[in-house]
Design a protein around this nucleic acid. Sequence first.
DNA 1: GCGACAG
DNA 2: ATCTTGTCGC
Length: 236
Amino acid sequence: GEALSRAVPRSEQDRLRAAVVPEDTERWQREPGWAGLQRVGGVDLSYGGGNDGSACVSLVVLGYPGLQVLYEDCRMVAVNAPYVAGFLAFREVPFMVEAVERLQREQPELRPQVLLVDGNGLLHQRGFGVACHLGVLTDLPCVGVAKNLLHVDGLVKDELHKEQIRSLQKKGDTFPLMGTSGAVLGMALRGCNNSSKPLYVSVGHRICLETAVHLVKSCCKYRIPEPIRQVEKQGS
DNA sequence: GCGACAG
DNA sequence: ATCTTGTCGC
């Protein structure tokens, strides 16, 4: 049953979680103006039919800070695992890893220096969302960017949360997402002036929360940061 | 126990 | 995620 089928993924999450590095480890992250940052990637799966298991994995690499498209790859895949909240990575990450490996094989010079992932990182039931999972498996710096709040560790979209959202007046405004445990699991970020609906940014791997938030902000022309907007555009 | 739950 | 028309704003 479901309890049994969740047992393996769960221990897998527990095992891999120890490898997450929730801080800046890259040279560019410490350089003024991130002078050494030249390529930012985005990954996503999109489901055309919805009924069958067919989906499209997309990987794009954009130049930084110009955000021009340097590489795009889209490939149809057969998804087997169902979507279960808290286990998104087990459905999507294998195909993302393949896409990263294909890029590494065919155009290694375009390897992204950081990857924006559609979903959460540390902001997760067990502190190991899809952005952490992909980061650990590829050893690439990763950032989780979710479009909706994952209700975990006491975080809920209640009136207080909505009031905090209303307090985000302009692009770059943020508020911390602190769980009942007291830990800051991520940040709500207003990515552009035109949309009041925030992004939920969290650490994936090899980047700290502050750097992650500034990076996502600097990738936003519209609400959805360009690397993710481009892969979503490609998927449809 | 029951509902809620990233994509 | 995806199903879908109109509507408001630049």
